[in-house]
Design a binder for these strands. Structure first.
Lengths: 133, 133
DNA sequence: ACTTAATTGATAAAAATTATTCTTTATGTA
DNA sequence: TACATAAAGAATAATTTTTATCAATTAAGT
């Protein structure tokens, strides 16, 4: 198992067992809603409080350890912060996949046209995955 | 003023004064949160209920008269449904602009690579607008 | 003008999120 | 290794957001 203690400390977060388990769950599952994360955590810490989940999600967001992905017509999910990527959403089975799309050229062009200094993109492509055609 | 009565009826919605005002407000303002829409509506209908706002937003979403835009680190906003477009978000002043970006070629490519049948995109580009550099 | 189903406002209820308080614990230092 | 302390945890209350209920009103078709 990866050393999440150091991961947490790098992000100025005390390495508690609950937090280590949250990071582990996110690593294993990729994308999770608060609801689902809570159910996962309950299996490991039978008396964990839902407030602990919310507090930690917010702290980890503030410290850029995780990232929120706002899903159309559904609840947000959270993922460990990684290099910039887009998301594929299957509208049938709900599965979410990361996909590397190079948007640099496109963004540069839009930046010039619109006079916006763009430093971040959120790109979600929705449809049906290969299992749900 | 545009004939919102017919617009509403086309979407199978009874044309009440409240609904006509909602559509008008969205047309005039472009993008609005429920909160802001409620404040606008209160000015015209001093006794309008917040439940009426929520119910109508949900109905209009179901009937595809309006569209939800999920803004990173902020509340969702709603806009009248129009042809596919992306959004520019200024992180400083909060302004949201529509921008027409042709994503067809890119989406086709991703579709082939990933074996996803993609039929919709949500693309938000965040940064600083020209007034906020 | 009349009938009827849908909408509204008022309000209660439910769901989601945040705040509070007291106890426990991670971590830096002696 | 033990100690001090600031931070985090659980429990729970409070707040915020959204949805449901219901009686009164109204849009729209006949």
């Amino acid at each position: 198992m990866i050393n999440y203690t150091n991961t947490l400390r790098k992000h100025k977060l005390k390495a508690t067992p609950q937090r280590i388990a949250i990071v582990d769950a996110l690593f294993l599952n990729g994308h999770m809603s608060t609801e689902f994360l809570y159910s996962i955590m309950l299996a490991k810490f039978s008396s964990i409080s839902l407030a602990t989940i919310y507090k930690n999600i917010n702290l980890m967001l503030e410290n850029c350890l995780i990232n929120e992905v706002k899903i159309p017509h559904a609840k947000s999910v959270y993922e460990l912060t990684k290099s910039s990527h887009s998301h594929l959403l299957c509208k049938k089975c709900g599965n979410i996949e990361d996909v590397a799309i190079d948007l640099e050229e496109l963004v540069d062009k839009i930046s010039k046209i619109t006079e916006f200094q763009i430093d971040k993109t959120d790109f979600i492509l929705s449809g049906n995955c290969k299992n749900c055609h």
